[in-house]
């Protein structure tokens, strides 16, 4: 028994020495394998430690889901495990090899998509809005001459003190909100509500034709799906110019 303890001690000592040496290199390599060698380019980002608040309220979807990221230089990273951090508007990924979370370098992201149930959600990073530099992720519901985009954000609301699911007393509630925008290269983002009046007011010169077209096609705008259908119809009939 004593011998076993000695051997265990020696093995642990050697392992510790190895780890300490490896760390002196300034590079932590963890479990590298052939999957780590992405010839086309590597992922850049910053290691992240999630706190309970972020984990509970700010991440979407509720669990890590498969997704893909496209960089502005054309590099595509597939089969990543992704979640969108709506509070600080960041993309978070989980590295399976190293078993760590990291925040994807936002400046490099062109778009990302992930599986949300049966739906694939695609987010794009907007770099310019009305000639103003910006750096925000927007979900792209429809892409065309006029695109329909959604800005996800977490709204912090003061409420009466309550105990959350972890038993911690809180006086704020976080709610996920969505703002809808029409986007064109020329005009940038214009906020819009999901109803017919808002769509008509966006294209005042074609109101009559748009009304007629929506009526003929039986489209009643009251959600994302109907707004996308309406926009598609407008673009097909050249009523967005």
């Amino acid at each position: 028994m004593s011998g076993l303890i000695k051997y265990t001690g020696v093995v642990l000592g050697v392992l510790f020495a190895f780890i300490a040496k490896a760390q002196d290199m300034g590079i932590d390599t963890y479990n590298l394998n052939s999957e780590s060698n992405k010839l086309q380019g590597k992922m850049l980002g910053e290691v992240l430690t999630l706190n309970a608040e972020v984990n509970s309220y700010f991440l979407y979807p509720d669990d890590w889901v498969p997704g893909a990221v496209k960089f502005v230089n054309g590099n595509v990273f597939e089969n990543l495990r992704l979640r969108y951090q709506a509070y600080s508007d960041e993309l978070i990924s989980y590295n399976d090899n190293g078993r760590f979370l990291y925040q994807v370098e936002k400046e490099l992201v062109e778009s990302f998509s992930f599986q949300d149930g049966n739906k694939t959600r695609k987010f794009v990073r907007l770099t310019k809005n009305n000639n103003q530099q910006t750096n925000m992720y927007l979900e792209e519901l429809y892409k065309g001459a006029v695109s329909l985009m959604v800005n996800w954000y977490i709204f912090e609301q003061s409420v009466s003190p309550y105990k959350d699911r972890n038993g911690i007393t809180r006086a704020v509630e976080y709610q996920l909100h969505k703002d809808y925008y029409l986007y064109t290269e020329h005009d940038g983002l214009t906020k819009i509500r999901l109803n017919r009046a808002a769509l008509l007011s966006r294209f005042p010169e074609n109101q009559k034709q748009i009304r007629k077209l929506l009526r003929q096609n039986g489209i009643h705008i009251n959600n994302e799906f109907s707004m996308v259908n309406a926009l598609r119809l407008l673009i097909e009939n050249n009523l967005t110019e």
């Binding site: 300034g26 590079i27 932590d28 390599t29 963890y30 590298l32 780590s36 992405k38 590597k42 992922m43 850049l44 980002g45 910053e46 290691v47 590295n95 090899n97 190293g98 760590f100 990291y102």
Partner: peptide, 12 residues
Amino acid sequence: KSERIFGDLRFN
């Protein structure tokens, strides 16, 4: 001054 990643490598 943060823990950066490059692919599967980490730098302190």
